[in-house]
């Protein structure tokens, strides 16, 4: 464990608390893509089905990510259902899941169910944010709290990049699947980060140019 990874994980943790805070305080899941949240459940379940013990930290985090992502789906689907507008959450997830299944079958470290699911989850995580970003693009604006959620989530994978560089030099290990997918995942946030830093951090509302 190094500081980059620790702060990456903490940022991931923070993003979930920010999202929950947003839903609770506004009593609404407006502006949040149900599809993206559902994809995260698929990501965590397919990745953490590998019960190999690593550490207490690792186990607790895994349980938290599975539990919280399912809880968020419950909030969106049941508790605050009327506040979710499916007509703007229109990204076709089959275009993400299909290719990720294929990529998982082709690129994996061992052709076993657990390993293919692990690869699939890595690929799917890298694109799971797309329905959310697509929704943002469609509406052209976002509540500030929602942009903080996205920034924390983007920072999580961005921090994993220096973590991999650090691990390469200290342990001599590289995980090509995780690194490739991680770079793609971080890349998808670049546009968002640009607007976040130039507008939201300056106290302005998140609005995309028309």
């Amino acid at each position: 464990m190094n500081l980059f990874r620790l702060f990456g994980d903490l940022s991931h943790l923070a993003s979930i608390f920010i999202l929950l805070h947003k839903i609770y305080t506004t009593r609404s899941c407006r502006g949040i893509s149900f599809k993206t949240q559902a994809l995260y459940v698929a990501v965590f379940v397919s990745r953490y089905i590998d019960f190999t013990y690593i550490s207490v930290y690792n186990t607790l985090m895994k349980l938290f990510f599975i539990g919280s992502s399912c809880y968020i789906l419950y909030l969106m689907r049941i508790k605050y259902r009327p506040t979710h507008d499916p007509s703007i959450d229109t990204f076709r997830v089959e275009y993400l899941v299909g290719p990720c299944v294929l990529l998982g079958l082709i690129f994996n470290y061992q052709f076993t169910v657990i390993e293919v699911l692990w690869s699939f989850s890595i690929f799917l995580e890298s694109v799971a944010i797309l329905p959310q970003l697509f929704m943002l693009q469609r509406t052209g604006e976002a509540e500030t709290i929602t942009t903080h959620y996205l920034a924390a989530l983007g920072a999580y994978r961005a921090l994993y990049i220096p973590n991999w560089i650090y691990r390469y030099f200290t342990e001599g290990t590289v995980d090509p699947i995780a690194v490739t997918a991680g770079l793609v995942q971080t890349g998808l946030y670049l546009d968002f980060f640009y607007v976040y830093f130039t507008k939201v951090m300056q106290g302005q509302k998140f609005e995309l140019p028309a």
């Binding site: 990874r5 994980d9 991931h12 590998d50 190999t52 690593i54 550490s55 690792n58 985090m61 895994k62 990510f65 470290y109 061992q110 390993e115 692990w118 994993y160 973590n163 290990t173 590289v174 995980d175 699947i177 995780a178």
Partner: peptide
């Protein structure tokens, strides 16, 4: 053991 790579990450 290549299969173990990255598996300690979340």
């Amino acid at each position: 053991d290549t299969a173990a790579k990255g598996k300690d990450e979340l």
